[in-house]
Amino acid sequence: MTTTLLAAASTSTGEAVQFWILGTVAVLGALGTVLMKRSVHSALCLAGTMIVLAVFYLANGAYFLGIVQIVVYTGAVMMLFLFVLMLVGVTAADSLKETIKGQRWLVALCGLGFGILLIAGIGSAGVDTFVGLGEANAGGNVQGLARSLFTEYVFAFEITGALLVTAAVAAMVLTHRERTERRLTQRELAEQRVREGKHLPPLPAPGVYARHNAVDIPGLLPDGTPSELTVNATLRERGQVRDVSREALADLAALERRTGEYLGRNGTDTRAVRGAADVRDDVSDDAPDTDEGRAGDGDRDRDREAAK
């Protein structure tokens, strides 16, 4: 595609094909931006539309703008959008249910009326004589833009610069949070933890006492009960904790039995282990991570030691 072609007064077949294909894509992208439930998808659709528009800029002889569109808009601005989306929460899907009564109908009415009137206006304006940018772009598009920008529009340009600086400062001021009190030292934080009666030592790691070391498997206490503390709170919230205590106990019991058979021993020990497993079944059906549950575990541990 040569310069003359792109900036011609009339369009080639190639440009027509490009317009109809990419135009469809642009409209679909725009609709997607508006209608997608998740804002990330909206952002991606918007990015697509912007790239298509960049192509259209190029096709219209605005080479500099086409590049800027891709670099600044699709690159920087959309990245900023995604960044904020991450901050705000990327996974939440918006409800598209309308809460304001009659809003949807009003928007449909106004949108249709506005669109039809706008298109009718453009249609009736009778713009069919296109001068084309052949002459204007003769000395190069960027050079031409620069000439206007630094002569005719230099004042606006400078003002825009000031605007950008102001915006940067404003963004900093807006997002900056003034610290209202002194930052706590490590010692103070530790004292605070003690005062609040929280768990002081590091939380137990998952899977340490079991034969698994995946993060979603709670570690087992010495008596074989799973400890909820060892699993990440997020996983606990989601109910994604895999309890392997029963299998582990069953394995242990089988090992004991086999050992016993091998040694020719029939003993109370095996029964004790089995009894422990039965008790465990009962408890794990209830909420196992409550304080009472854990306290009960401790009691039981002591009982067992006493029995021994």
Binding site: I100, Q103, L106, V107, G111, G113, F114, L117, A120, G121
Partner: peptide, 18 residues
């Protein structure tokens, strides 16, 4: 809701211009 009225107003302005 306020924006809708702005939008409708813009539509009316275009209609008036035409």
């Amino acid at each position: 809701s306020y924006a809708v009225s702005m939008f409708g107003g813009a539509a009316i302005l275009i209609a008036a211009t035409l």
